[in-house]
Design a protein around this nucleic acid. Structure first.
Lengths: 241, 241
DNA sequence: GATCGCCTGTTTATGCGGTAAACGGCCGGG
DNA sequence: CCCGGCCGTTTACCGCATAAACAGGCGATC
């Protein structure tokens, strides 16, 4: 059924399969992903994938790893030679945010798939990435305990903000949607919500992310002895409305 | 096949089904939940559930709603008559954390299921809850924009912290686990990780949550004119190590 | 250059999942 | 006493993940 011309284009391979899965999810959503459909997407029967992957779960793990590892291939992020811990955390945060926004259908997987070890905190899932983060922090003068605390705080920050940002993009809604009665028409019982609805619908994701990131960095800087803060976290001015 | 004695215990009902689903998930995990299995759990054929629910998705939605609404049935949370916005946010945060820890297998559902409206930010999923939150904030003197900003910041905070806390409980791991070679034995390539592993494995979730909550509340208080802050967010002392 | 074995993708088959539709018994009102 | 409707059951369908048997082409060996 499948002959020469097709076969040339085919040429399976784990990395090709995973890349196709990522594109498939980006295009059609995670819930559409099926072994058979991914096979068809690659011009192949579904069962062919099992020659390269043990099963569907392994495929999803590989998808997550592939997407997260893009951080270390991104020239803008270059996590290996950072100019100080602040710069490092900023690049890390922006790099992960870029990944989340590039693959909004994949990101929930990055965020919620069970981790390899209990201390691996999504969305920072790569051992190499965590090692690198902790190395930068301890080199910058954070104690082991503080480095661990920063890692925890940073991962919570990223998970909360990015998961909410991508979910606001309307990810994962089924194929056809039912406008039902009216879009957001049942707010009559909730007067404040009704009044604030336009305000709530405004997109502040970028600015919120930046502001929360800066605040977190300031808070982290306070863990360091004053002389090593690099100008960060001077006395906060009060009443800045 | 199923006769009198059994039938007496049966007596289906949407709320009974949803409650059973919550218990089922708590006991066996989300991935074990199946219409047929839930039926069996209730002493009934799987198809019987379809008389009360349109389908599996609707069941999951109802599970989420049921778990979240427990907030408003909890006498410790009493969100209707709060003593000030700080107290309100603290009760809300602690109430949700209690829910997350009581139903760790359900919480990822609360956190990631597509919301009814784009401005509904998990894990705060109930219109009533959001209305109440916004009412308290605006009554306390926050502008509409600030109230919305607080809502956004608070939901990000809760989502990040609670999702990570429950996922650290080892939720959703398959039935049998493969210790494979050794538990966390492949750290040889990551010396800092290896050194910090005991530190990272310590459980700081409760203290981290409290500290991040207090910090967030301080930051929120700065949005108010100084006279309305209720003693919160005085000038932060510097260098508190 | 012919043969053989392996690598790769295909076919076939099993069991389970969600769900539609037809079914049948029981119960309360006429 | 009958009958309609409510409720759970049965039967049936299709798609999914996956195991296992299969086939064809291609390169290595003689």
């Amino acid at each position: 059924m499948r002959d020469d011309a097709e076969a040339a284009r085919t040429g399976l391979d784990e990395s090709r399969i995973v890349a196709a899965a990522v594109r498939f999810i980006d295009e059609r959503g995670l819930r559409e992903l099926t072994m058979r459909r991914l096979g068809a997407y690659l011009g192949v029967e579904g069962m062919a994938l099992y020659r390269y992957l043990p099963g569907r779960e392994a495929l999803l793990d590989a998808v997550v790893e592939s997407v997260v590892d893009a951080l270390y291939r991104d020239p803008d992020v270059l996590l290996e030679a950072p100019a100080g811990w602040v710069d490092y955390l900023q690049r890390l945060a922006h790099g992960l945010r870029r990944i989340a926004l590039t693959h909004p259908e994949v990101f929930p997987l990055v965020a919620t798939r069970p981790a390899a070890a209990p201390w691996v905190r999504p969305p920072l899932r790569s051992l190499r990435g965590i090692e690198s983060l902790l190395a930068v922090l301890t080199a910058a003068g954070f104690s082991d305990e503080h480095a661990a605390a920063v890692y925890r705080a940073f991962s919570s920050f990223l998970l909360g903000h990015l998961l909410l940002e991508v979910s606001a993009l309307g990810v994962e809604t089924g194929p056809v949607e039912e406008p039902d009665v009216a879009p957001a028409g049942d707010l009559d019982a909730y007067p404040i919500l009704r009044r604030l609805e336009p305000t709530l619908s405004q997109d502040h994701a970028g600015a919120d992310f930046e502001e929360a990131l800066e605040t977190l960095l300031d808070r982290i800087a306070l863990l360091l002895p004053a002389r090593r803060r690099g100008g960060r976290a001077a006395l906060p001015r009060n009443g800045d409305q």
